[in-house]
Design a protein around this nucleic acid. Structure first.
Lengths: 215, 215
DNA sequence: GTCTATAGATTGATAGAC
DNA sequence: GTCTATCAATCTATAGAC
């Protein structure tokens, strides 16, 4: 009943507080991605979610805080993809699944990827602590797995870091440089093209470290 | 004599007009890279080259024009790297040389690479015509070369575009995400690490498309 | 909880003395 | 060609009516 009262008070057009916040975060993610933090304006974000500008300051105290919430949300998506790198699986399965998941994320969360890239390019003022803790721990943990594969003779000897950077770079490129890719492609990639690109990325990397078609 | 008069008139501290413009462009490249176009301020650029803010407007009419000049300069560096992809060479030599050159550029021109990435991520408002002409022509020309290699059985069958995107993504990642890499590495990459990363990138890609160590 | 109006701060750009 | 002072525009953030 308290819920219904609440909905009443909010008027008919508006959704719940969570829904409105999500709408604002979606709009902000897109505007931050396309204009950068400095180039983004609260007015543009308000326009993109059909809200009066002042309302944004009711839900989020400041532009900086809104930006921080956007970045935190992207971080959760990143963690989700990181989990798909299962150290218990074979190198073929683990890497193929991880690369595929990262490609899917680049397609589904283009704007999030761009915000992340912007944040890192600008020196990671917001997520520096995350880089030094969660990301570093995750990277070293997977590096150990890859070194184990190498010791077992399953994978050609490479520094795991250069391999991981290559996977991150290549998959995220399809989001961050989507505009360039779509210009060269005379339009957005089709489903078939996404599949082909994913397969090619998997193929080159797996074969490049000595997997698939062995020797 | 007219030259000496000119130097006289400019005062003792300042260099030639070209030197001052270059100093401004260097500073602008760095500030645009680290803050984005919207986040960059003329004041910050002026501080970075030790000039009063108003002088910037004497040499460059507007912030937008200064930005355009920075991007044009980066484009010339890009063209220089593109030339290292020699279609007359063997696939091993051509690709290894191109990748190596791109890695060198990522190391030498970190800020330029970031400005380029920013520009593309924001929809390439300035360089769109270049993407549709020079870049597209270059890409299709090299795609034809790669398809020829494939037809000759020298390279495994892959869509040349996915291969080129992979090379661009991986090499530019070392500039654009330098902050993340240096955080994970506990400091800048050493000469030996740059060499090792370059060698690993070459090795994985060449082997991934069936070159080096054949089968 | 929503919206209009505006205060307060920043910044791009220019005027004018030197 | 250099530098100080300042205008004009823009944007974040808030006040206050509804």
């Amino acid at each position: 009943m308290a819920q219904a009262e609440n909905a009443e008070r909010q008027g008919s057009r508006a959704g719940s507080r969570d829904e409105i916040e999500r709408a604002i975060l979606d709009a902000a993610e897109r505007v931050f991605a396309e204009a950068g933090f400095g180039g983004a304006t609260m007015q543009a974000i308000a326009d993109h979610c059909g809200l009066p500008k002042a309302n944004l300051h009711y839900y989020f105290a400041s532009k900086k805080q809104l930006y921080r919430r956007v970045v935190e949300r992207i971080f959760r998506v990143w963690l989700q993809a990181a989990d798909s790198f299962e150290s218990s699986a074979s190198p073929e399965v683990a890497l193929r699944r991880y690369i595929t998941r990262k490609m899917e994320l680049s397609r589904a969360h283009r704007y999030g990827s761009k915000v992340w890239a912007n944040e890192v390019m600008h020196g990671a003022p917001i997520i520096q602590d995350f880089l030094e803790t969660t990301l570093r721990d995750w990277t070293e943990s997977r590096a150990r797995v890859i070194r184990r594969w190498i010791a077992e003779g399953q994978v050609r000897p490479v520094d795991p870091h250069w391999l991981l950077y290559m996977i991150w770079a290549t998959t995220q490129h399809y989001a961050d440089f989507a505009h360039q890719i779509e210009t060269l492609n005379h339009g957005p990639l089709s489903d078939a093209q996404w599949d082909a690109a994913t397969e090619t990325v998997c193929g080159i990397i797996l074969r490049g470290i000595g997997l698939e078609g062995g020797r």
